[in-house]
Amino acid sequence: MATIILISILLISFFTDIKDRRILNIVTLPAIAFALIYHSVTGGFSGFQFSFFGFLVGLGLLFIPFAMGGMGAGDVKLLAAVGALQGPAFVFSAFLYTAMIGGLIAVLILLKQGQLMDSIKRILFASRLRTLDIVDKKELHHAFPYGVAIVLGTFIVQFGGWIQ
């Protein structure tokens, strides 16, 4: 049942993030609540711990990028929902694949726009990169809906057989 909910929230989030650049609370928050209740009912207190720690890992992995302004709260809540549904080890693996896919998408966008070398130079020669506040807001046109990377990374782990 948790897998069906996972696939549902991933597909909905994929399309809403592409179309509206939003991941909806009406999708993620009920999924988190469902996961906590479902795992508590089916696994007792250890089921609750499994789901709760998965939620915390998913939340924690993207909290710093969110706090620095690098992504939206919907992305954080989506990964937290993945963790609540599938547990801490799963969400950590999904995060690793998400990061690789997100990096690949970013490189492809920069290549397509002819901005890859300029971006590499800015990164290499930046003297202080403490916060994304130093990035000119006009440069954020390179940003993309990161929910897409979260969905793809999670699908790889769910259906790729890398984690059981």
Rank of each mutant, 00 (worst) to 15 (best):
T3C: 07
I5M: 09
L6M: 02
I7Q: 10
I9N: 00
L11E: 00
S13H: 04
F14G: 05
T16N: 02
D20T: 15
D20G: 13
R22W: 15
R22I: 15
I23Q: 01
N25Y: 14
I26W: 15
V27I: 15
V27Y: 09
T28Q: 08
L29C: 15
A31C: 11
A35R: 00
I37Q: 11
H39T: 07
T42R: 14
F45L: 12
S46Y: 13
S46T: 12
Q49N: 11
F53N: 14
F53W: 12
G54Y: 00
G54A: 08
G54K: 04
V57L: 12
L59T: 09
G60F: 08
L62N: 08
F63T: 14
F66H: 14
A67R: 13
A67M: 13
M68C: 13
M68R: 14
G69R: 13
G70C: 14
M71L: 15
G74M: 05
D75G: 12
A80M: 04
A81P: 04
A81Y: 06
V82F: 02
V82D: 06
A84E: 01
F90C: 05
F90N: 05
F90H: 04
F92Y: 09
F92K: 07
A94D: 06
F95I: 04
F95H: 09
Y97H: 11
A99F: 08
I101V: 11
G103Y: 01
L104I: 06
L104K: 03
V107L: 03
K112S: 05
Q113Y: 00
Q113K: 13
Q113G: 09
Q115N: 08
S119H: 03
I120M: 05
R122G: 10
R122N: 12
F125E: 14
A126W: 12
S127N: 08
T131G: 12
D133E: 13
D133P: 11
I134T: 14
V135T: 14
E139H: 09
A143K: 10
P145E: 03
P145T: 04
Y146D: 00
G147Q: 03
V148L: 02
I150M: 05
L152Q: 03
L152M: 02
L152V: 05
I156M: 07
G160Y: 00
W162Q: 09
I163C: 02
I163L: 12
I163Q: 10
Q164H: 09
Q164P: 08
Q164M: 07
